[in-house]
Design a protein around this nucleic acid. Sequence first.
DNA 1: TCCTGTGCTACGATAATCGAAGCATAATGC
DNA 2: GCATTATGCTTCGATTATCGTAGCACAGGA
Lengths: 119, 119
Amino acid sequence: MTASRPIPRPGRRVRGSASGRPVMALLDLLGRRWTLRVIWELRDGPLVFRELQARCGGISPSVLNTRLSELRENRLLEAGEAGYALTALGVELLELFGPVDRWAERWAAALGGARRRGA
Amino acid sequence: MTASRPIPRPGRRVRGSASGRPVMALLDLLGRRWTLRVIWELRDGPLVFRELQARCGGISPSVLNTRLSELRENRLLEAGEAGYALTALGVELLELFGPVDRWAERWAAALGGARRRGA
DNA sequence: TCCTGTGCTACGATAATCGAAGCATAATGC
DNA sequence: GCATTATGCTTCGATTATCGTAGCACAGGA
């Protein structure tokens, strides 16, 4: 255990917010590197540790394990027979990102159409 | 110039993904520390630099400036008379988080009701 | 001129993340 | 029994991101 920051949880004080408002805890949790990506990669079903690691582009196992712990602690994810899977709560959260996926396409179109820079 | 990581953009390769899929770029962008929070704090209107910094719990100005650059570069935010404000795109993205806010409340309720640990 | 507020930079210190290697366990094949 | 493979996961040194404080340059206002 590397004993990093406390895992953000609703009702607790979180990074940069003394309020403990749920959304602040959520933003803290999701704002950590790879967290959003991990949830995203589990959208089509459970994945074992190493497969999940690969899907996340070779994220280092220590960080992945840390993220898995945080997400498990917050009941967004659980370990089962087939590997790690989103819980019912996790699926709900993921579903909120469905529109985000579609929006990202429009965002890309807006950026690509509006400017002619970069690659 | 600290020349950190390249700013993620749709169509470019991003952290842990060679695909350049818009949603991957978005996850990379939003997965950086304080990014979600900055967008969130601008939900009620423009804020000047220092006020935004304060709302984010005293985030260090260098990081805030980095985040602002990234968000400006991606047209989610712009600097105007009254300070920094979300663009139309930024508002759209924020609106996707409306359900997230409500969901966070239910999430907190689920966690609080289901377990009796921690403090 | 002296405040105050603005956006923002510099820089040393600290914490998070990386990258690679490896451990312990369990299942499989021989 | 013994090697092989796959599993979840740990360790550790190196790199990167973020922090925290101080301060600069500019623009009013008094």
